[in-house]
Amino acid sequence: MWDIIALFKESLPSLISGLLVTLKVASISLVIAVVLGLIFGLMSIGKSKFLKALSIIYVDIIRGTPLIVQAFFIYFGISSAFGIKMHAVTAGIIAISINAGAYLVEIFRAGIMAVDKGQMEGARCLGLSYSKAMQKVILPQAVRKMIPAFINQFIISLKDTSILSVIGIRELTQSGEIIIASNYRALETWVMVGLLYFILIMVLSYFSRFLERRLRI
């Protein structure tokens, strides 16, 4: 028992610093992903066939390939082809952003389509331009409908950051591996790593439910 507490105390600082990297990569990526998702989501429902095709190609390529391949492609592929020295964290953020963005495109598209057609007509008849109507009337309603799907994607992406351990980012999973390499206590360490992920995601889930209740219309 004391043994486990000592182990816990010993590895906690390193796990926490890993957790902070995980949080940093996930939160920056998700902000970028929301922007990507919104832009490509609007492209996918707009009038321009070209932009629509572009959006479909983006979503299909990302959904059709594993995240680990995307991460390798960005970190090793692009840097070797163009001779750019990219920091692993930068590559990781790009990979998660682009990946989550593609899934958010579909969430945005579905959310916007779920708003009654009459809302756009009502706004346009008052003289609002398409973009004004989108901004003031459609998106505020769509975003409320999207919250559960949003949070779901956030949670998936947060867990996906563990894949970035393969390109050498010292996030939570990688920190666990490093600790095990020195103390050989795989069972206890993975339980701790799992617990930290679990607590983080529980907090996010409860926040989501709170948000949903608050923003209900």
């Binding site: 009654d116 009459g118 809302q119 007509e121 009502g122 706004a123 346009r124 008849c125 008052l126 003289g127 609002l128 004004k132 003031k136 009337v137 505020p140 309603q141 409320r144 219309i217």
Partner: peptide
């Protein structure tokens, strides 16, 4: 369209805005 007011069968009020903001949205935005 500013010259033509339109009233729909299904009202099409904006549920995200209260009554007065429904009315002032277009004068403010347009």
């Amino acid at each position: 369209r500013e010259k033509l007011g339109m009233v729909f069968q299904a009202f099409n009020l904006f549920p995200n805005l209260n009554v007065i903001n429904n009315i002032t949205l277009a004068p403010l935005a347009v």
